[in-house]
């Protein structure tokens, strides 16, 4: 459980990072907190030839609420999000509590988690739910990729090896949104994560969006429009059943496909109920 040989480099600003990545080639990886990458290196599941440590870059740790929504700097720690009070984005702070354990939340970064692209990761699921845009910078300049297009498969994203994530933009507030998930132990990766966003009146759903983690290679958008339905437990329960019927989750040591479908039904209903509350 010791990593294969690699070289270590430190970057002091974004341009420096881009330059170093270009020089070190495509086997180099960015180190942005290391809470997933370092463990994978110790198991030799990841073997980067070089690490470019960006955690000393100043000014990338921010949560900025503006008229357009929320901008999250790539180096914002999970713990910062957890403890922040962000008008209209309470779902982010609440969901942060599902991320690993306290030390992990103190070191792991928002951009790092998005770049890692784990389909059960809270930020990945919520980025898709809230239709965030991922801001990338590379030798060809800046570009924005919608989260719905960013996650492309099992730990695969739209980011090129020579690009770095600098920011994640959430376009509009989501006062009625929630994420819930299940694992047998607190802090483990979710077996299934379910998130929901609603617009609703007192008693009726206006729009809805449900996104799942742990049921496919990337976050999965459930095809269910609850518009016009009563905002009640029966609606949420039925939506859970609809979601479960749509997914074809993988089986692994943490849960069979059939169990993940049952979890999907239960968790979607709970996420919707919490979002509506």
């Amino acid at each position: 459980m010791k990593p294969a040989a690699f070289t270590y480099h430190r970057a002091y600003d974004v341009n420096d990072t881009i330059a170093q990545l270009a020089e070190l080639g495509q086997d180099a990886k960015i180190l942005a907190g290391g809470q997933s990458l370092v463990a994978m290196m110790n198991f030799r599941l990841a073997r980067p030839s070089a690490l470019v440590d960006i955690t000393r870059i100043a000014g990338l740790d921010y949560l900025e609420r503006d008229a357009q929504g929320l901008r999250v700097g790539a180096l914002t720690r999970h713990r910062t999000v957890e403890t922040a009070k962000i008008d209209g984005f309470g779902v982010l702070s609440k969901a942060a509590r599902w991320i690993g354990h306290y030390p992990i939340r103190c070191r792991g970064t928002f951009g790092g988690s998005i770049a890692h692209g784990d389909s059960t990761a809270e930020w990945c699921v919520l980025a898709v739910l809230l239709e965030a845009r991922i801001v990338l910078q590379g030798p060809r300049g800046r570009r924005e990729v919608p989260a719905t297009e960013f996650f492309q498969g099992f730990f695969m994203t739209a980011a090129q090896p020579d690009e770095m994530i600098v920011e994640v933009r959430f376009p509009k507030p989501a006062p009625h949104a929630a994420l819930t998930e299940y694992s047998q132990r607190q802090g483990d990766f979710a077996i299934v994560a379910a998130s929901a966003r609603l617009d609703l009146t007192e008693d009726e759903v206006l729009t809805s969006r449900v996104v799942l983690g742990g049921v496919g290679q990337q976050p999965v958008v459930v095809d269910a429009d609850l518009a016009g339905q009563p905002a009640n437990e029966e609606t949420w329960r039925a939506a859970g059943e609809v979601a479960a019927a749509q997914v074809d989750p993988p089986s692994d040591g943490h849960g069979s496909s059939a169990y993940r479908k049952k979890l999907t039904a239960a968790l979607v209903a709970r996420a919707l109920a919490e979002a509506a509350a």
Binding site: F43, R185, Q186, G187, D188, F189, G253, H254
Partner: peptide, 16 residues
Amino acid sequence: PQAVTFMDYRMPTAAE
């Protein structure tokens, strides 16, 4: 073996 890390071999923590 399918439980070769603490991710897969699930010992209870204080929370459990």
